[in-house]
């Protein structure tokens, strides 16, 4: 079995609004996947469904082949750090490690947490409430890793951290991924971080999966083309135009390619992950509301 996390037509509804709909993707073992999308796209909902905190209203989600909702059997394999790393602030670091052990008898390895906390210079008697944001994030990660999970889910782990703390957090995460081979799904808005850290992408937009796959494949099949103004007819070698902008003379296109593009007509350049994501997210948004505002487009 290759997929550690698999969603098939997965949907979740709050009242009559779908927070997530028709969500289908699979995450192969050993990958570090970025879960990306604008606020309200359904990222946290997806993570909560994957960890079994929410029940799907449609379709299914499977973690290591099992439904996570109302299923304690899958919990030992899952590590989850929720947004803003909620920890008991009155507990000391040592008490948290003890508590983690009592709550996770199956595979808990306290030495993982102790080693990491020692490296970070966090004293056992230190209360969690007195730690910096970066240290709290590191404590939460250390606790999650002590479960030795096969799938680690992180909801905006670095959003509130300063650049140095963010770098240190990602260092710790990448070091442990290298050591344990844990599969990771992490949501983030910090696209520049993701490019180096992630080798898989799940891009959500307005409750749907907009783009998913291995980063290498996605970057290998997308190009930016610049050429003389294009009339909109089919371009040989181009499977889909993701985004386009035109001047009187020139066209700039973000395209998905499926063959050779005529490079005498087009200047073709590779795109980075950040540009690719922005290209996909940008294209629907500018459905102008000029009429509603009473201004001309």
């Amino acid at each position: 079995m290759d997929a550690v996390l698999e969603a098939d037509g997965l949907g979740k509804r709050y009242g009559n609004r779908w927070a997530l709909r028709d969500c289908t993707f699979s995450l192969p073992e050993g990958q570090v996947a970025a879960l990306v999308g604008p606020n309200g796209a359904g990222k946290s909902t997806l993570l909560h469904l994957a960890v079994g905190l929410l029940r799907p209203d449609d379709g299914s989600v499977r973690v290591l082949g099992q439904q996570p909702y109302d299923n304690v059997a899958v919990l030992p394999d899952l590590g989850f750090v929720a947004q803003d790393t909620p920890l008991y602030r009155d507990f000391t670091a040592a008490e948290l490690v003890t508590m983690g052990g009592k709550l996770n008898r199956a595979r808990w390895d306290a030495s993982v947490a102790r080693n990491r906390l020692a490296q970070l210079g966090i004293a056992p008697h230190q209360r969690v409430g007195t730690l910096s944001g970066g240290q709290r994030a590191q404590v939460a990660l250390a606790l999650a890793l002590s479960k030795r999970p096969r799938l680690l889910l992180l909801d905006e782990p670095v959003a509130s951290l300063d650049p140095l703390a963010r770098h240190e957090f990602l260092q710790a995460l990448m070091g442990s991924v290298a050591e344990t081979g844990t599969t990771v799904l992490l949501s983030s808005h910090l696209l520049s971080d993701l490019e180096r850290v992630c080798d898989h992408l799940v891009l959500l937009e307005t409750a749907k999966v907009r783009l998913t796959g291995s980063v290498d494949d996605l970057l290998g099949t997308h190009r930016q083309l610049i050429g003389a103004r294009h009339d909109g007819s089919a371009i040989p070698g181009v499977a889909a135009v993701i985004r386009e902008s035109h001047t009187d003379r020139q066209s700039t296109l973000l395209v998905r390619v499926d063959g050779w593009v005529d490079e005498t007509r087009w200047t073709s350049t590779e795109v980075g992950l950040e540009d690719l994501i922005l290209g996909y997210l940008g294209d629907h948004r500018r459905q102008g509301s000029h009429a509603a505002w009473g201004v001309t487009a």
Binding site: L170, Q171, A172, M174, V177, A178, V197
Partner: peptide, 16 residues
């Protein structure tokens, strides 16, 4: 070692 490079540079071990 792959682990050391991944950690030092905060990059995906698969990249190394």
């Amino acid at each position: 070692k792959v682990r050391d490079v991944a950690q030092a540079l905060a990059i995906n071990p698969n990249t190394v």
